[in-house]
Every structure is written in structure tokens, then in C-alpha cells.
Amino acid sequence: MLGIEDPWVWLAYLGSILVTLICVLYGWLRRDTATDELSAEDRRWALEEQQVEDALR
């Protein structure tokens, strides 16, 4: 298949494309499934993170 005789190699070739398609499908199906809320804790964490980053600037 595809000019490759070893099935383990064309399995890897097609498997790479297939798993990419699965990822695309996953992202598409779940695009609005999970909640998207920014909690006070998340915001507090981001402020601290900003300070860590600023220390490295």
C-alpha cells in the first residue's frame, strides 16, 4: 500500500493521518461542550503568574 510493503510502516503512515482526523473530530464535537468560566481563583492565579513573568522581563 502507498508503495510501502511493510504493513507496520503504512499502519504508522495512515495511523498518523487517522489520529489527526480523530483530533479534528474531537475538537469539533466538543467545541461547546465544556464550560468556559473564569473563576476568581483563576484570575488570582493569572495575576501571580504575571508577577512571575514580570520578574523575568
Partner: peptide
């Protein structure tokens, strides 16, 4: 990352 939703949506582009 802001939320689980952002992670889910990043999967396709990351894979490609």
C-alpha cells in the same frame, strides 16, 4: 489556559 473548552478547541489545530 482559561478553561476546558479552550483546551478542547485547541486539539485539532495542535494535531494538524
Amino acid at each position: 489556559v482559561r478553561s476546558r473548552r479552550e483546551l478542547d478547541r485547541a486539539v485539532p489545530v495542535g494535531a494538524v
